[in-house]
Computed example of a mutant assay.
Amino acid sequence: MTTPEAYEAAGELLRALAAPLRIAIVTELRDGPRCVHELVDALGVAQPLVSQHLRVLRGASVVRGERRGREIAYSLTDEHIGRIVADAVSHAGESDTSPHEAPPVRPVTG
């Protein structure tokens, strides 16, 4: 049985992931650690904006930073988070259903 605390923690995780740019950052970090300037280049957004969203993700323990000389390389704290985001993006990109329609019922065979 799932506890109320687990539901609360899941809600906090989903709130941290609830911004398109944070989803994009997590998607980039699925391929491995990235420094802020690499995320800026990959996502085409301003550095202060990337840093602001990284702070939110760090606060929610979605990402961690590791110093590399003068830079900090950010990585996901857990590969499951990357899969959650990839599944959500994939699901949202499915073109055969809109958010307001129920998916078609498929007959059960066999």
Rank of each mutant, 00 (worst) to 15 (best):
M1P: 12
M1Y: 11
E5K: 13
A10L: 12
G11K: 03
E12D: 13
L13I: 06
L14R: 03
A16Y: 00
A16V: 01
L17V: 00
A18R: 03
P20K: 10
L21A: 06
I25T: 02
I25R: 01
V26A: 00
V26P: 00
T27A: 11
T27I: 08
E28C: 08
E28I: 01
D31W: 10
D31R: 15
G32A: 04
G32K: 06
P33M: 04
H37T: 15
H37Q: 15
E38L: 03
E38C: 07
V40W: 02
V40H: 02
D41Q: 13
A42P: 08
L43Q: 00
L43M: 00
V45F: 07
V45H: 09
A46C: 05
Q47E: 14
P48Y: 00
V50W: 00
S51Y: 08
H53Q: 14
H53F: 06
H53L: 03
H53K: 09
H53A: 05
R55S: 13
V56S: 10
V56M: 08
V56G: 03
V56F: 08
L57S: 02
R58Y: 10
G59T: 01
G59K: 02
A60V: 05
S61R: 14
S61I: 07
V62H: 02
R64S: 15
R64C: 13
E66R: 13
R67Y: 02
R68W: 12
A73T: 08
Y74H: 15
Y74S: 07
E79N: 08
E79K: 09
H80A: 15
I81Q: 01
G82P: 03
R83N: 14
R83A: 14
A86I: 05
A86H: 08
A88T: 06
S90T: 12
S90M: 11
S90F: 13
H91L: 15
A92H: 13
A92N: 12
D96Q: 11
S98P: 01
H100L: 11
H100M: 10
A102T: 13
P103R: 15
P104K: 05
P107D: 07
V108K: 10
T109W: 10
G110V: 05
